[in-house]
Each structure stands twice: as structure tokens, then as C-alpha cells.
Simulated scan of single mutants.
Amino acid sequence: MSTVLIISGSPSSTARPGVVATLVATALTAAGHSADLLAVRDLPTVALLAEDRAEPAISAALSAVESADGLVVVSPVYRAAYSGLVKSLLDLLPTGALVGKAVLPLATGGSQGHLVALDFVLRPLLFAMGATKVLPGHFVPDRMIEEPGTGTGAVLAPARKALEDALVPFQDALRKASALTA
């Protein structure tokens, strides 16, 4: 199957976007894909902000993006924009790094008003970065993700089903790309 890199702009593994990223990794792995999670917060901050592509962890992250067949970009929405962590990593990518890759933007946020960040901010950014196969994004409201301290930190059933449904066209895009290169 395909290799998928899940880029998480979550401030922590237990924050809501981190919970969504983990769920996506689990679902894609169960579907037979190789799914790796790249938590941008774990990259060396100074090297990331200084755009030090020679730093080993930054170089490895860029190589992971390059070698992936598809990307899932998970970001919290803050004040109608994606995470600065996501933007910091995407800014390091060389021109054309996303060409031909299936890309699925996902976001979490406090209200339905944050939904517009997917279509009017994150998707255009991905296209501007050279992505040619950006699928419609999917938004998971914060209220549909249990607080990590109050339970399992799980995505509630209706949102989980909707998220799994959003992965179907992404997986179809991966299969089509795989068939073209075979």
C-alpha cells in the first residue's frame, strides 16, 4: 500500500489535534497503509525557525515529506488560521515537494466559525506550496474530542465516523496515484 505522513501541528500529543492525528494514523494503518506521524513540535525549535535544513532532525522531516505518497496535515485553528508549527515546516519544503501527492487537510477548533480556515487558509496554502491533489478538508469541533484528563482523549463516535468517511476519498487518491506509477 501507500506511505502516508501525518504532519501534526498540535502543541502536545494530548491536545485535540494530536488526538485526531493519532486516530488518523491508526485508521490508515488498519487500512494497510504505512502511516508515520511527524509532530512538528518535536523538531528543534531554533533549527526550524532558522530554516536550518542541514540539522539532522529537520533534514529527516523533509525527507519524510519527500518520500511519502500522501500527506495528512492536522492543525488546530487559532483565530481563523492554521498553526504556526505547520507553516514553519511547510516553509522549509522545496518548490514542487507536494506535486503529485494526495494531501488531506484536517483541523480542530472551538467553533464552526473556525471551519472556514480549512477552505480559505489551509487549502490555499497547500496549493501555493505546489500541491496538485489537495482533497476537501475536514473539521473536527473541539467539543467532539474528549478532554484527555477527563476520559480517553477520544474522538466521539459521530465525529469519528465523519473523520473515517473523510479518509475514504484520500485513500482513493492514494490508490489512483499508486496505479499510475505501477
Rank of each mutant, 00 (worst) to 15 (best):
V19F: 02
S63M: 06
T14A: 05
A21L: 10
A131C: 02
A107H: 09
S63D: 14
L38P: 08
L48F: 13
I7P: 08
P105R: 03
V4A: 12
M129D: 04
V140D: 12
L163I: 10
S63P: 00
L180P: 01
V116Q: 12
T29Q: 10
A179K: 08
T3A: 15
A166E: 08
F139L: 04
V19M: 09
G9T: 08
S178E: 07
S8T: 07
M129Q: 09
P11M: 12
L126W: 02
L167W: 11
A177F: 05
A179G: 07
A68C: 05
V24H: 08
K133W: 01
V168Q: 14
K101W: 00
A102C: 04
V74S: 12
S67V: 09
P44M: 05
S10L: 09
E164C: 07
P169E: 02
A173P: 01
L122W: 07
L92H: 01
L104W: 04
I58D: 08
P136C: 00
K101Y: 01
H138R: 11
A157D: 13
A31S: 14
T181I: 08
M144H: 14
P44N: 10
G96M: 00
L126H: 00
V74I: 06
A102W: 08
T150L: 15
G151L: 01
K87C: 06
I145N: 03
K133E: 05
V40H: 03
Q171R: 06
G32S: 06
T45V: 15
H114I: 11
V155A: 07
G153C: 04
L93R: 03
T132D: 01
S83I: 11
S10G: 13
E147L: 13
S59V: 00
D142L: 07
V40W: 03
E51R: 14
V73F: 13
A173H: 03
A166T: 10
P169Q: 05
G110H: 15
A30Q: 12
L115H: 09
L90T: 04
H33Q: 14
G130W: 00
V140M: 11
V20T: 13
H138G: 03
K161A: 15
I145P: 02
A35R: 10
S178G: 11
V116C: 13
A30C: 02
E164K: 07
T14V: 11
A31H: 04
F170K: 03
V134M: 00
A128T: 09
S59Q: 09
G18H: 07
K101S: 00
A131P: 06
I58A: 02
A80K: 14
A166V: 07
G96N: 00
S2R: 08
D42M: 06
G110M: 10
P148V: 04
P105T: 05
E146M: 12
L135H: 12
P76M: 10
D52H: 08
L38E: 13
S34Y: 05
A159Q: 04
T26I: 05
G110Y: 11
D142N: 08
T108I: 11
L5E: 11
A21E: 06
A159M: 15
E66Q: 08
V72Y: 09
P17N: 15
L93C: 07
G137F: 03
P158L: 02
A117M: 14
A39D: 15
S13A: 15
L37W: 03
V74L: 11
A182D: 10
R160N: 05
L93K: 05
M144K: 07
A27G: 13
V121P: 00
L135Y: 07
E51L: 15
P136V: 00
L23I: 13
G84H: 02
I6D: 07
A173E: 15
